[in-house]
Amino acid sequence: MRKIIGIILLIIICWGIILALYKIPFGIPKTKVGEYYIDKGREETGAANVVTSVVLNYRGFDTLGEVTVLFIAAIGLGAALATLKKKEKRKIEPSSLILRTGCRFLFPLILLFGAYIFIHGHLTPGGGFQGGAIIASAFILVYLGCRGRRISEVSSKTTESLGGLIFVIIGLVGLAVGGHYFLSNFLPKGELNTLFSAGIIPIIYIAIGFKVGSELAGVIDNLMEES
């Protein structure tokens, strides 16, 4: 019964969306806002990667919200699991020598790769969120390989809050000096396609990279403790 109702409901939605999609043929050239970003984005923000200039400059307020959502998830997850924590020492079988050495060897390399991704966010595909996710994957490797190792809660919390605060403070500095607009790009734009370009964009992306990395690692840490 429930299945039939569900299918009927979905067919109605499907029919409506097909009607609406007639106006949006697939593969048409860009729309007006997108065209503007591609044409003017390089001059106005100094970033070679147009997506990054949209994410952090034109629509930077969205990204601030996005960072906040991730922060809420980390805090909410901690709150939901908080009362369960019993610090019982489970007996952990030590992992083999090869696994342990392999993890230790790979861990700094993955961290380096993550840092590369978020530092070059304004030049190449990538950015703070992607780099942060890669960094968190390094921590998963450590959890799985070198069992019994944990990240320190204090340092992960500090990184989280500092990352968020730096983003907001850079925005407020823009409000104070850069023509009185929140999040305005007040630093010199530099030369296109070089590492030191695009004003505030790399700084914010580095802050986001640290924040996302520590947040995701913290989330995984919390979930691992429960299972």
Binding site: D62, V69, I72, G76, L77, T83
Partner: peptide
């Protein structure tokens, strides 16, 4: 801005999901 509305709406919703479960 309509997408910004979506983002703030999600902030509102996700923090209320977490707060409803506060007592656990």
């Amino acid at each position: 801005d309509i997408f910004n509305l979506f983002v703030f709406f999600e902030i509102l919703c996700i923090s209320s999901y977490a707060l409803v479960a506060y007592f656990g």
